[in-house]
Design a protein around this nucleic acid. Sequence first.
DNA 1: ACCTGAACACCGTTCAAGT
DNA 2: ACCTGAACACCGTTCAAGT
Lengths: 224, 224
Amino acid sequence: MAASASRKQESRERLSRERVLASAIRLADVGGIESLSMRKLGEELGVEAMSLYNHVSNKDDLLNGMIDAVFAEIESPSLEEDWKTAMRTRGLSVRAALLRHPWATGLMDSGTTPGAATLRHHDRVIGCLRGGGFSFAMTAHAFSVLDGYIYGFAMQDKALPFDTPEDTGAMAAAMLARFPTGEFPFLAAFMREHVLKPGYDYGDEFEYGLDLILDALERRRDEV
Amino acid sequence: MAASASRKQESRERLSRERVLASAIRLADVGGIESLSMRKLGEELGVEAMSLYNHVSNKDDLLNGMIDAVFAEIESPSLEEDWKTAMRTRGLSVRAALLRHPWATGLMDSGTTPGAATLRHHDRVIGCLRGGGFSFAMTAHAFSVLDGYIYGFAMQDKALPFDTPEDTGAMAAAMLARFPTGEFPFLAAFMREHVLKPGYDYGDEFEYGLDLILDALERRRDEV
DNA sequence: ACCTGAACACCGTTCAAGT
DNA sequence: ACCTGAACACCGTTCAAGT
């Protein structure tokens, strides 16, 4: 009692893989992936960095675990609903997860040793498309174009150097100011006439593209 | 004469931003972006790491320069051709560049301070779409879905843990062996019936998706 | 079984000093 | 003007030692 009370109360519960992963995700959410180091993570947990290696085999394993935790947050596509609404919901759900965890964007498809939640997610996506009448070949096409788009869009959105409309204006001006007037006429007009108009938000583009692809897939479903 | 001959001949031409960038790209092409450090780059050029700072303001500036050099390798989309063939050629051209320089995949749209070649490329893409009859709003849609897909596909392809068909089989087996039989039935069937069939190459999916998107854009071009 | 301290081999970058 | 050596504040990871 006295002994346990004398220790720093905060983070002195026993370490576990789950606690390590949760802490790492919080750190990456707040400060970005580049601010996540084994040493800082240890500090966050009130422990030396080296203790982490008892719960995670190295930093790569840590990242894999974090990714799988993100997939676990995404509800797997339903096998009851019709494929198109299920795939639409799932697309929006992945995007929402990547907005919560932008650091995961480049890593979701990092391939090596996917975790259980990751495999389950992919299993359900394939099951949903097969159940919707897609051949194996068409399932491969659909999977590829949908996930390519979903992750690629997230990457672009994340990389965008402006988060607010005010930033957008400043950025656009700075970008074009570095070059002779008229050197990039189409880009300049596009900025002026579209991007800088009030109400523009790049994030809004996501659904347009998702629906465009889903419609196109529906049209091609019965080919080949 | 004698003096200059006594120095190591190899890399003793004067340093310049161009030489630094070219060397950095070569290093990243060969060993991946994570093997590119200021110290190794210096060594490659026969110079101390600190000398690089005379030609590049920091590592971020180095990376921006490298990206712009990759864009400079990509021929800008023609404004004479019809928009669809021009955009198709350009999509394939970007993909080819990313196959030559996989390390660039996550960085092409990194936003901050794009270089002249990058801006020119984007200017031409917008010009091509506008010239093809796309409204500003539709140009934004088209740009977003095309680039999202192109970069997203490259990211997935790069992340794929197998480069050869033999690897694919080994990988698929290892992946599924870690879990109870039947836990991922759709994934397992998909692997068995499609991915592991001879002749399968994920890279081939790229063109299918590109054409699917271009067709869908054509159909929607005159809306809104 | 879990945690630690010291150490190793790396990073990017600054700064005063050299030519 | 360009290059260097030494230094600073970081990394991931190993390993022997502690409890």
